[in-house]
């Protein structure tokens, strides 16, 4: 019996993938041994990130790690992937939303419609600005060319931010060549890990979302061809990857804010930032008006955040 070979491409570059996906794939390969091997490719390596989804549907790539937004999946849920503005406060919100509030079923259904298996959702870091110039007020954001997620960019553009989309691997160079003034893509852990902290000087502590939503996907046919035990093994390894990120980011964010030396922290006062939070309410309404599915998901986000608010400390402090 020959070894089953899969190709998986992540939307993360090599340095980041070292933490967020490689350990899980290495573990999978070690356990599966001769039965199955997954070859891991990094951002834009085999196909550009914008083509990831198509490539998976056709089977150029068997599996993908990405958020819905970055790879522009042709589904109703695209805008909620990556950073849905103010949708989550903490990274634990994501698995709760998916496993206890019903997002998992919606995602499974939406992706099955386009021939893709949604394996599982996981959380990454919060979304902060890393910039060359300090940001101390909303006015400082005006006219800044920033690399960010499509939906986050759509939301932020009302504050004068110019969202720019480039291949992930080109970001560091683009900051140096002047194509970008900053990045609103990650927390501080990632800024240090991938080298962005070397090309930007300031880190804004306000975030537009507390946790990224992203997933592992597979080509449906390929997934169905796998024996059940390998499917189970893959799910376990991917859960392990989600778990690794939970503590790696949670600890990393605090540690680098306190002990990091490459970036200076700045903040926009809470009263001023409240304008951005208020804008998110309107933005949610706009999204909900776009379709029934979207309205349903927005309602789940509303319900969840209201519940957390009522639960009080330690779930919400204000």
């Amino acid at each position: 019996q020959s070894t089953i070979k899969w190709r998986m491409q992540t939307y993360a570059g090599a340095a980041l993938a070292e933490h967020v996906v490689k350990p899980a794939i290495d573990t999978f390969n070690k356990i599966a041994g001769e039965r199955m091997q997954i070859e891991l490719f990094f951002a834009d390596q085999l196909v550009p990130t914008g083509e990831l989804f198509q490539a998976m549907q056709r089977g150029t790539i068997d599996a993908v790690q990405s958020d819905d937004d970055s790879m522009a999946s042709p589904t109703e849920v695209t805008v909620f992937g990556g950073y849905f503005p103010f949708g989550c406060r903490y990274s634990l919100d994501v698995p709760v939303l998916f496993n206890q509030y019903g997002l998992k079923e919606i995602w499974d259904g939406e992706y099955a419609k386009v021939g893709v298996k949604h394996i599982s959702a996981g959380a990454w870091d919060p979304c902060h600005f890393a910039t060359k110039d300090p940001i101390n007020s909303l006015a400082d954001l005006k006219g800044k060319r920033v690399f960010t997620f499509p939906t986050a960019g759509r939301f932020l553009s009302q504050f004068g931010v110019i969202p720019v989309t480039l291949p992930w691997e080109d970001i560091e160079v683009a900051v140096q060549t002047g194509e970008l003034d900053g990045i609103a893509w990650s927390g501080i852990t990632e800024d240090y890990t991938v080298g962005w902290a070397d090309v930007t000087d300031y880190f804004l502590t306000n975030n537009i979302s507390g946790a990224w939503i992203g997933h592992f996907f597979a080509n449906m046919e390929r997934w169905n061809e796998l024996p059940e035990d390998l499917q189970a093994l893959m799910m376990v390894c991917m859960e392990q990857s989600h778990y690794y990120r939970q503590w790696w980011y949670w600890g990393g964010e605090a540690n680098l804010r306190v002990n990091g030396t490459k970036m200076k922290l700045t903040s926009i006062p809470d009263a001023e930032w409240a304008q951005v939070e208020a804008a998110a309410v309107t933005f949610w309404d706009e999204i909900a008006a776009e379709s029934e599915t979207k309205a349903k998901i927005v309602e789940i986000f509303r319900q969840y955040n209201a519940d957390m608010q009522k639960a009080g400390r330690p779930y919400r402090y204000s």
Binding site: G50, S70, A72, P74, T75, P150, G153, S157, V164
Partner: peptide, 9 residues
């Protein structure tokens, strides 16, 4: 169907 749009703003 769902027409593909660029991921830019």
């Amino acid at each position: 169907g769902t027409m593909e749009r660029s991921r830019t703003i």
